[in-house]
């Protein structure tokens, strides 16, 4: 069974009388342990596709299955639970809670699935160590550099041991050197821990870290190919 199965997905936004077809029949299958880059110009439907993969949105038609679970019939709260257990999000703008320490930011997903305080602490500490931020637990986001903030976000995505990390332009706000560090961290997580990573980017050298590139244009997949790795 594939980890992610998107079968003939369409997504239509109704804006009054006008219907906007953001996705027009997308079929993609992603297996456990893959590292996939999603590319395409703005308006190509890649963000809509990511929202659906992230269970933040539902397809208008077609089926989307995560670990065999059909998203179509699920309630708002069921979707929240799937996001909590199976998906980790890394955003371009980091999206950490300000005025909240790094440790507490990482603990956040565990607040919503009933872990004991002790376990939350230990696991958050462990996650921060694994992204190289040991000793920064009590720093607040505004005391951390952009790269460090993105590491906190990655730790937060890891802490619930979700099998999938969805990264939406994770290096978009970072300089080249820091971008490389973040991408190397993601590659390491993929190869060492077998976490499936799906990454949206429009930079070729960032996409080059992946092993498969899916290109979108006008709401459909125009190419889906493996990258040449040496």
């Amino acid at each position: 069974m594939s980890l992610i199965q998107a079968q003939n997905i369409t997504r239509i936004y109704s804006l009054g009388d006008v219907e906007l077809r953001a996705l027009g029949g997308v079929t993609v299958t992603i297996d456990r342990g893959e590292f996939v880059a999603v590319m395409g110009p703005s308006g190509s439907g890649k963000s809509t596709f990511m929202n659906i993969l992230g269970c933040l949105d539902k397809p208008t038609e077609g089926r989307y299955l995560v670990e065999g679970i059909d998203i179509g019939g699920l309630s708002r709260d069921d979707l929240a639970e799937i996001r909590n257990n199976k998906l980790g999000f890394v955003f371009q703008g980091f999206n950490l809670l300000s005025r909240t320490s790094a440790l507490e930011n990482v603990e956040l997903p565990m607040l919503y699935n009933g872990h004991a305080a002790r376990e939350r602490h230990d696991r958050a500490r462990e996650a921060l160590r694994s992204v190289g931020l040991a000793g920064r637990e009590d720093h607040h986001p505004n005391q951390l550099s952009g790269g460090q903030q993105q590491r906190v976000a990655i730790a937060r995505a890891l802490v619930n041991r979700a099998p999938i990390i969805l990264a939406d332009e994770p290096t978009g706000n970072l300089d080249t050197k820091t971008s490389r560090e973040i991408m190397e961290l993601l590659v390491r997580l993929n190869s060492d821990s077998g976490i499936t990573i799906i990454l949206v980017t429009h930079e070729h050298d960032i996409a080059a870290y992946s092993r498969r590139i899916i290109r979108f244009k006008d709401g459909v997949v125009v190419s889906d190919e493996l990258t040449q790795k040496d």
Partner: peptide, 16 residues
């Protein structure tokens, strides 16, 4: 609003 969005994305349910 943004904080609420973050919490929802990482799994906060309606009653949370």
């Amino acid at each position: 609003t943004r904080e609420i969005g973050i919490r929802m994305a990482i799994g906060a349910k309606t009653w949370d």
